[in-house]
Amino acid sequence: MGAERTAVEMSRWTTLDRITNVEPGVSASAIRNVPNTLAIFDSHFPRFHVLPGVLILGSMGELAAHLLAEETGTSWRLAGAGQVGFRHFVQPGDQMEITVQLKERTDEGATLSGDVKVEGNVVTRARQLRMVPSNG
């Protein structure tokens, strides 16, 4: 799969709408739109629609996998995360601007940091996204 990993192959729950920038070995950016049509808002929550934080984390993982695939030509997956802060709710109508930065990489794993902004304000920040090679 590697660099040819496409939106169809990613989970549509965390999928990115557009990769806006990739600097292999350094950083990547993408946008993900949050439309009112998502069925998830029927139950999360009936009186207050908010995108689950775990799915925001998943989107950062998708972008991290994309950046690493561009550099290595192989597939990667999210293996863990540390110090992830959810500062503001992400709600229908928001456009998430996601950025990840590579901190270190070996053959066995990679560590990145990531943040998500909506209209310039940081809504989620992950100090550590831990990635491992995947054969999937």
Binding site: L78, A79, G80, A81, G82, Q83, V84, G85, F86, R130
Partner: peptide, 11 residues
């Protein structure tokens, strides 16, 4: 509960 932060998670 609404999620504020995750100290660490391992999949």
């Amino acid at each position: 509960a609404a999620l504020l932060s995750i100290g660490s998670v391992d999949f």
